[in-house]
Design a protein around this nucleic acid. Structure first.
Lengths: 197, 197
DNA sequence: GTCTATAGAGCGATAGAC
DNA sequence: GTCTATCGCTCTATAGAC
């Protein structure tokens, strides 16, 4: 690394994003210094401030981009208009495979909420709520059609998401179970929880 | 506060523990300074080092004490020798009510693993594994008796614990649901997941 | 048992040269 | 677009007085 003048700003911007993501996930936002991020990128610390007004915005941008990508990816899946039973299966599979391929983003989005300013916290919470409602709407539609039996739609939604996201705490590539097998097990557990036949 | 000579060391030790617990849970380990803890306790920063060799041990002691208390509380419950179906219900109720009354401890024990030294991390992981195995043994015993139908004992254990612990992220005292009602809903969800009749 | 004072280091952010 | 230099501040941990 160690570029001088003439470097591409876009490249540096991406490098900063990647370095911040990795370091924040590894050590936590408060434990990472701007100097450390700069070293990882291969620039001096002053250069970081061409790309972010401050350290906290760097974190907020990562979290907001992650949640927006998550919502956009679900839209692209195009499963929102399927019958509830199929939409439910699609959601479970989507959630697990998306989360298993974005481990650092997911980790940060759950762990660093308290490091955000109130404004950024509100933005992140709004996006998270939108995502929760994707699942909740599927559950309610399925209940209305009589194919799901729910105790409480909101609690079941949160219970499902907590269960599914929990995979990230123990999954390691090359472990006993393949991602496909894991998806299969969690899909069965999830269907049991909503009383799907 | 602001004691001088003649104070009780036991009182101060407890004050430090409580202050560290609260501040670490609120702001995260790395974001809390020893000065801040001292201020909360009502002593000068130098006094803290009479009670802990360093900041990191303060954290490790909190986490290890929490997990040891959790295991001891389950032992006191005396449900380990019940038939699997009853032991399972007892575990679910125990887990939720214990976790809902120790919000800060639980939060720290999940969030600050990366702030531990390798030795302390290993201790904490060992205790956590012991606790997971309490549930896993119940599941396996129930499957052997033919009252549970499991896809995978280990995955189901981790899925259950993630689901149950997830309550801590949304429960607020005085909310829509009482702790008793929440326990009831989660018990039903949990029984569905293991195929209990 | 607690205080004051301090060492030695690192922090976020900015100014100005190139 | 990046660098160097620096301001003003905070940090953990320790030494020595009381």
């Amino acid at each position: 690394m160690a570029r001088k003048t003439g470097s591409s700003g876009i490249e540096t911007a991406r490098g900063i994003r990647d370095a911040a993501l990795k370091l924040f996930a590894d050590k936590g936002f408060a434990a990472v210094s701007m100097r450390e991020i700069a070293r990882e990128v291969g620039v001096q610390v002053g250069a970081l401030y061409l790309y972010t007004p401050d350290k906290q915005s760097l974190l907020a941008d990562l979290m907001i981009a992650h949640l927006e990508d998550l919502l956009a990816a679900w839209q692209r899946e195009g499963a929102g208009d399927l019958p509830p039973s199929q939409a439910f299966d699609a959601f479970v599979g989507f959630h697990i495979s998306y989360h298993l391929t974005r481990v650092d983003e997911v980790f940060i989005a759950y762990m660093e909420l308290r490091s955000l300013s109130p404004e950024n916290f509100a933005k992140v919470e709004r996006l998270r709520r939108l995502y929760e409602n994707v699942l909740q709407d599927i559950l309610i539609a399925g209940e209305a059609e009589g194919i799901f039996r729910l105790k409480d739609a909101r609690v079941t939604t949160l219970a499902l998401i907590a269960m599914l996201t929990g995979v990230n705490t123990w999954y390691r590539a090359g472990g006993r179970l393949s991602p496909e097998r894991i998806e299969e097990i969690y899909r069965a557990l999830a269907r049991d929880m909503v009383g799907a036949p």
